[in-house]
Computed example of a mutant assay.
Amino acid sequence: MGKYKNPSLTTDIFIFDDNENFILIKRKNEPYKDYWALPGGFVDYGECVEDAAVREALEETSINVKLDKLVGVYSNPSRDPRGHTVSITYTAKGDMGQMKAADDACDIAVFTKKDLEKINLAFDHEKIINDCLNSIVR
């Protein structure tokens, strides 16, 4: 396996309600410690991306989600300071009343698009969030 250098695969989940409010977690660890981010994380070997998205949402937000749709694939080699990661991003629905920060999250909150101007976002999540918001406009 050592001959080829491959990017890591991650998933991000945009959990939203019917009023376009959405959940962000505050990162507990570096990189971007104490920055707000979409729930998400690395896909385990042998795991399909959809299962990883549901698992990561539950681990970080305590919410069982139902994936809504695929938003996009984000693959800029410099999007993560730890190395080249490719993120597959989904919108999802779940009971936002159940949210509780867990695992790699030290805080959790509900945001609106207007709130994005006032917070520090990790990685390329501002672009991803805007893509997600554009994808749910009905």
Rank of each mutant, 00 (worst) to 15 (best):
N29P: 03
E30Q: 15
E30P: 08
P31M: 07
P31G: 09
Y32I: 06
Y32L: 02
K33R: 15
D34T: 10
D34L: 13
D34Y: 13
D34G: 07
Y35S: 12
W36F: 13
W36C: 05
W36R: 12
W36S: 05
A37K: 14
A37Y: 08
A37V: 01
P39Y: 09
P39L: 03
P39K: 14
P39R: 13
P39V: 06
P39W: 14
G40E: 00
G41V: 02
G41P: 08
F42N: 00
F42M: 04
F42A: 01
V43A: 06
V43E: 02
D44S: 11
D44L: 10
Y45L: 13
G46T: 07
G46R: 09
G46N: 10
E47I: 09
C48L: 09
C48D: 10
C48I: 10
E50H: 06
E50F: 04
E50I: 03
D51W: 00
D51N: 15
D51Q: 15
A52P: 05
A52H: 04
A53V: 01
A53T: 09
A53I: 00
A53N: 08
V54F: 04
V54S: 10
R55S: 08
R55A: 06
E56F: 06
L58K: 15
L58R: 15
E59K: 15
E59F: 14
E60P: 03
E60S: 08
T61Y: 10
T61A: 09
T61M: 02
S62K: 15
I63R: 01
I63T: 05
I63D: 04
I63K: 05
N64R: 14
N64E: 12
N64G: 07
V65M: 10
K66W: 03
K66N: 11
K66G: 07
K66E: 10
K66H: 07
L67R: 11
L67E: 03
L67D: 02
L67K: 11
D68V: 05
D68Q: 12
K69Q: 11
K69L: 11
K69Y: 03
K69M: 07
L70N: 04
L70K: 10
V71P: 06
V71T: 12
G72D: 08
G72C: 13
G72W: 12
V73N: 04
Y74R: 01
Y74E: 00
S75G: 14
N76D: 14
P77G: 12
P77S: 13
P77M: 02
S78V: 08
S78M: 11
S78Q: 12
S78G: 04
S78W: 03
D80N: 15
R82I: 00
R82N: 02
R82A: 02
H84I: 01
H84V: 01
H84L: 02
T85W: 00
V86P: 01
V86C: 00
V86K: 00
S87N: 09
S87E: 11
S87D: 11
I88C: 12
I88T: 13
I88W: 05
T89S: 14
T89G: 08
T89Q: 08
T89L: 01
Y90D: 06
Y90A: 13
Y90H: 11
Y90V: 09
T91H: 12
T91W: 12
T91A: 07
T91D: 06
T91E: 04
T91Y: 12
K93C: 06
K93M: 10
K93R: 15
G94K: 02
G94E: 07
D95A: 12
D95P: 03
D95G: 02
M96A: 08
M96C: 09
M96Y: 08
G97M: 08
Q98N: 14
Q98T: 07
Q98I: 05
